[in-house]
Design a protein around this nucleic acid. Structure first.
Length: 930
DNA sequence: AGAGTCACG
DNA sequence: GACGTACGTGACTCTG
């Protein structure tokens, strides 16, 4: 049916629907996988209500119109346009494409055009309908659309009982007719869209003026005549700004559209298709309602079948010759324009080293679509590349660093441009050190981790090979290896262009591959709430670093040296000659061959094993093994801590900056490197003193907060162990209570020895207990250990059930999950041989360790905002502990806030049956604070 | 480069 | 019945 006289077009403002739905509903998630679907659910309800309300109406054509890309021609006119808009909420972003699918499922035309606001498309369609002699109803309450009303065009507010707004309604709102609405808006401005308007003039005054002078142009031309001096001055002074405002608020009704009104003909939904979509979304209520209406049996909603493998997106082959060397501002501007057109870009930085706190920026690469990438060299050195002392002047064909950064900065900080990277924490830190706050970001490494933890590592080279079938240029081929290795600024720019552009190209291709997989694999929520938001938090902590006192460490080192020397003398005496105490092989030979002690066991390599547990057993027979253990402890403390830590004190900041790896542990835990600040000694008094070197800045203190027994609490919850849960609720000594329960000893008669055994069993359970392991740990006979375990299972039957069910789940799905939906893959679980044993224990431990890791991640992500107004910084995370530095006077305030965040971190996603308890400490050093 | 050892949760 | 065995990390040293 061709659109013409007698036809009636309905245009639905899709974005308005989405935001209304999002804000009207609680944050619902899909049951089977936790995908946020609150907005989609509300959107479908609104569409359904709209369709039902239309029965018997005269509507012949209908379309839902969406915004696409947040950079439009209005941003070209005025870069602050809509600049004060908040970024889209994290849990809404993944729902946007689903609203498109929903529209199509309802069999309603769904239109959007890159770089245009929905309002302009609506304006153009309304004009076309008007000119064709038909009627048009715009379903929206957006006042920006009111300028379109008249000549058969009306608006309808679906939220307010389908109230119709015609010319009269517009006049009520603006005090002028629809034709003058833009004039009034130009004067009054709009704080929501950041349209400046004339300062001090609101809608009332604007309407008054326009009614008096007829048009804005007339008013501005005759501004001198205005009697009120203030008003006159404003209009004269801000004429340009007012004229700009008019351009911003005037909708473009002359767009070229790639479709016609005839394409928007109203059609009934295909019940099968509609129900299939709603079923997939697991919207039980609306499925039932529509099924009833159609008189069909509602389809069953159950956990969706495993998603079919995604077809690889079509991508051109890699071609390093096509990458562009960006040499000047004009060339860079072309790329920036393309990025704004797209709304996203893959970014990679090249630097002089791997340590972000020391490395300098050398260049930036960008990619907007597969195969189309560029490199902007910035600080490459000229001269002979192989000459170590070569020319330090800059190479040709580079933009000045600051000029390039000034051009890139607005884009890199623009909340509407998504920056895609592989391990973006690195790039974010490099940019931060150059005064650029990179945001928002997506990270392909974290996407891979969320989907595939446990299956493979998540480095770019591996991901490229595995998912793109492409082996990237090796960095070694540019830098060389070993002593002759050079830094990236010495790489010839021609080579750097190929390498760096390729990295950005790969990243973009990986993103296109992974992005649609996230929700099919049901990890969108994990990625959006536990991975992506952690990046800026960790970047900030790492850049803060912690102050370490070199003198303290240095004094300790000297003390350790002396003690070690003394021990060495004693050991040589005992052994009857010099040897290398640091060589386990030599220690073994002396013990078992030379001295002839019993119990020597040889490992795979044919050497005696001389681990601490073995030497401890031998210590009763001879002085030698005990002395070796003492020496080893000192050696460890000296080499790994007091000596090595000093080399990590940053020359510029005087602080130690660790680097957290988000994907380092398969369970969701972080790991810490260069240096590892998660294994600073504490268990022995001598080691603990190393923490005295970790200090607060003058006038500040360190505050440490740690979760008490978090893994056991999670075990009690997951395995539904009532006795344990009650004990935690009552605040009992959990190990003593376990002992009491197992050995029938009243709590007040508990001996430390019995409690120690129960504690070992509690930990054993978390690790996937075995009789052998417990026996070795407690140094008791194996059958006795097995007896303990049997009794434990008898007293706490939930444990056995949890273990069996977890292993069964792992065998069926090849993975286990945390309470927050994090997936930990367990590919070895069905293997034969000893590997299966490891995999089973890992599978039992992973949900517990992983859930605890998720909890503290949530706390850290919220902490940033919670302590915003306090003079405090979060510095370190040690699995169940957070360390802060805070002004002395604010320490108690910080503890109050941080404790609340940590104890409530699981909410609202998970409600534990046991309370989470956080202990806190304050001190001038980490030793005191813990 | 890998094994052994040991620091942490 | 045999098989090996607590879970998760990173850094340092020796050795081939």
């Amino acid at each position: 049916m061709a659109f013409g006289k007698g036809c009636h077009l309905h245009l639905i403002d899709g974005s308005a629907f989405i935001f209304r739905a999002y804000h009207a509903l609680p944050p619902l998630t899909r049951k089977s996988d936790g995908l946020p679907i609150g907005a989609v659910s509300g959107f479908c309800n609104m569409l359904q209500r709209y369709v039902e309300g239309n029965v018997g109406s005269d509507v012949t054509h209908v379309a839902v119109i969406f915004d696409k890309g947040s950079h439009t021609f209005r941003n070209e006119l005025y870069d602050q346009y809509k600049a004060n808009r908040d970024a889209m909420p994290e849990d809404l972003r993944p729902q946007i494409p689903l609203t498109r699918e929903a529209t199509r499922a309802f069999n309603i035309a769904c239109e959007e055009i890159e770089g245009f606001e929905a309002d302009d498309i609506i304006a153009t369609l309304a004009r076309q309908a008007r000119e064709a002699g038909g009627a048009c109803t715009i379903i929206s309450s957006d006042k920006d659309l009111m300028q379109l009303v008249g000549d058969g065009v009306v608006m309808m507010d679906a939220m307010k009982g389908n109230r119709v707004i015609d010319s009269e309604g517009v006049e009520e709102k603006f005090g002028v007719g629809p034709k003058q609405v833009v004039d009034v808006q130009a004067l009054a401005g709009d704080s929501v869209d950041n349209v400046p308007g004339a300062p001090g003039i609101g809608i009332k005054t604007a309407a008054l003026l326009i009614n008096e002078y007829g048009t804005l142009e007339e008013l501005l031309d005759r501004a001198e005549e205005i009697k009120q001096p203030r008003r006159r001055q404003t209009l004269i002074e801000h004429r340009e700004q007012i004229e700009l405002s008019k351009k911003l608020v005037t909708l473009d009704e002359n767009m070229e559209l790639p479709f016609t009104l005839d394409d928007l003909e109203a059609k009934d939904p295909d019940p099968e298709e509609l129900l299939a979509f709603l079923t997939e979304m697991e919207f039980r209520t609306i499925v039932k309602r529509i099924s009833d209406k159609l008189g069909v049996e509602p389809p069953a909603i159950e956990a969706a079948a495993p998603a079919a493998a995604d077809p690889a997106p079509e991508m051109p082959p890699f071609d390093a010759e096509r990458y562009e060397w960006v040499k000047d501002a004009a060339a860079l501007q072309v790329w920036l324009d393309r990025i704004y057109e797209r709304g996203y870009v893959a970014v990679d930085t090249e630097t002089t080293g791997l340590n972000e706190m020391r490395a300098d920026l050398v260049g930036v690469s960008l990619c907007v679509e597969p195969g189309q990438a560029c490199y902007i060299p910035l600080t490459h050195k000229g001269g002979a590349a192989d000459d170590l002392f070569g020319d330090d002047s800059l190479a040709e064909g580079q933009m000045p660093l600051n000029a390039a950064l000034d051009l890139l900065r607005p884009m890199l900080e623009d909340p509407s441009i998504l920056k895609i990277g592989q391990n973006m924490k690195y790039d974010a830190k490099i940019f931060a050190r150059n005064g650029i706050a990179l945001a928002p970001i997506d990270d392909t490494m974290l996407m891979s981790y969320a989907m595939n933890a446990g299956l493979h590592n998540h480095g770019m080279d591996q991901l490229s090979e595995r998912y793109l079938g492409h082996n990237p240029i090796e960095i070694k081929s540019l830098l060389g290896t070993g002593k002759s290795a050079k830094t990236f600024d010495r790489v010839p720019v021609e080579d750097a262009v190929k390498y760096a552009s390729e990295d950005a190209d790969i990243t973009l291709r990986l993103w296109q591959t992974f992005k649609p997989q996230l929700h099919r694999k049901r990890v969108t929520t994990v990625y959006e709430t536990l991975e992506r938001p952690l990046v800026p938090v960790l970047a900030k902590m790492e850049m803060s670093g912690i102050k370490v006192d070199r003198d303290t460490l240095s004094r300790m080192s000297n003390a350790f040296s002396q003690k070690m020397a003394a021990l060495e003398d004693e050991l040589y005496e005992l052994a009857g000659g010099k040897f290398n105490v640091g060589s386990p092989a030599q220690v073994g030979e002396i013990l078992f061959d030379k001295m002839g002690l019993e119990g020597g066991k040889k490992g795979k390599t044919g050497k005696y094993s001389t681990g601490a547990d073995i030497l401890e057993d031998l210590a009763t027979l001879h002085d030698f093994p005990g002395r070796v253990l003492d020496w080893r402890q000192l050696s460890k403390l000296k080499s790994t801590y007091t000596d090595a830590l000093q080399t990590h004190i940053n020359a510029e900041t005087g602080r130690v900056h660790t680097c957290y790896s988000i994907t380092g542990a398969n369970t969701g835990r972080l790991s810490s490197t260069e240096p590892n600040l998660q294994n600073i000694p504490i268990r022995t008094e001598e080691g603990r003193r190393i923490r005295e070197a970790f200090i607060a800045e003058e006038g500040k203190v360190l505050v440490a907060l740690d979760y008490s027994q978090i893994e056991l609490r999670i075990l009690a919850h997951i395995a539904q162990i009532d006795a344990l849960k009650q004990a935690f609720r009552d605040g009992l000594d959990i190990h003593a209570m376990t002992a009491s329960e197992m050995f029938n000893v009243p709590l007040d008669e508990m001996t430390p020895e019995v409690r120690r055994q129960a504690k070992a069993i509690n930990f054993g359970v978390i690790y996937g207990i075995s009789g052998f392991g417990l026996a070795r740990n407690l140094r008791i006979p194996r059958d006795e250990a097995q007896g303990f375990i049997d009794r434990y299972f008898e007293r706490f039957p939930g444990i056995r059930k949890y273990m069996d069910e977890t292993i069964a789940f792992a065998k069926e799905h090849g993975r286990v999950e945390t309470l927050f939906g994090r997936r930990i893959n367990t590919p070895e679980i069905n293997a034969k041989g000893p590997g299966a044993g490891f995999a089973k224990r890992a599978a039992i431990n992973a949900p517990i360790q992983g859930t605890a890791a998720d909890v503290i991640r949530r706390a850290m992500i919220r902490m940033d905002d919670a302590i915003r107004d306090l003079p405090a910084r979060m510095l370190l995370q040690v699995h169940d502990e957070l360390v802060f530095e805070v002004d002395k006077a604010a320490a108690d305030d910080l503890i109050g806030v941080a404790r609340e965040v940590m104890e409530g971190a699981a909410h609202p996603a998970v409600r534990f049956d046991v309370p989470l308890v956080v202990d806190a400490g304050i001190g001038d050093t980490w030793a005191e604070a813990h």
